[in-house]
Amino acid sequence: MTEEVTTEILQTHILDLAADGKRLDGRAPDEYRALSLEPGYVVTADGSALVRLGETMVLAGVKLEPGKPFADTPNAGVLTTNAELIPLSSPTFEPGPPQPGAIEVSRVVDRAIRAAETIDLAGLCITPAEKCWTCYVDIHVLAHAGNLIDAALLAAATALSHATVPAKRFGIAEADYPLKVHHLPIECTFVRLGDTIVVDPTFDEERASQGRLTIATDEAGRVVAMQKGLIGAFSPDDVRSLVRRAFVHGDRLRASVRGGGA
């Protein structure tokens, strides 16, 4: 009960601050938290990255294994994305089968990677209709301090950018080679706090929010995925202006991923 009361007071405070264009952590409405990227964090993975976005911490690992292509795409490799919101990362997560929140994170991240054509699936075909590479992207949320979607895609994109196809290990080629990565999608998440719309929400801002909108863009100037979540609404004009903001943030964040550091 005490927690609920504190939460309500905090939420009102967050909304009051937002009305003046201010935020609890001192950021401007259009400012991201500090981002750090650590590619190659896990040596047992074929590609990995630890991402810190403020206090949110997400680890992505890529594994490639030979498998069988889907019947309807015999000349392409297979991509699977999975996000685990493990109970270690937040008191609100419980053990057990994936909850809708975790499924949403995986699917929204997967959608961006797929629609942006991040990895060349045709290039992952080994023998048409028989053998192909299956690329698993596993996302582990280690600390949930808000904006899991953006952090998860940043981790996945960084891990894929630094991944190696283990062709030698599986006796498919003489040597391992780097995984080819084309377009890098970046997701940019906003929440509505009254009449103000802020980027990169914290956990508390998400709880206080009246609607969340994620927009994924790629460097070819295309919008590749969107997802509205939580309770609340956005006008078409809101969406148009947020798309503009998403392109600006996307360019900056993409440069960090390409650079492979902060």
Binding site: R111, R114, A115, A116, G211, L213, D218, A220, G221, R222, V223, V224, A225, M226, Q227, K228, G232, A233, F234, S235, P236, D238, V239, R240, V243, R244, F247
Partner: peptide, 27 residues
């Protein structure tokens, strides 16, 4: 759409569109 307010309460997208195409799609 919430017709009274003109706001969107469900919005998803997959594929690729330019900013201008997206804007026309909303209308």
């Amino acid at each position: 759409l919430v017709p009274q307010s003109g706001r969107l309460v469900l919005l998803q997208m997959e594929g690729h569109m330019t900013e201008e195409e997206l804007s026309r799609s909303l209308d």
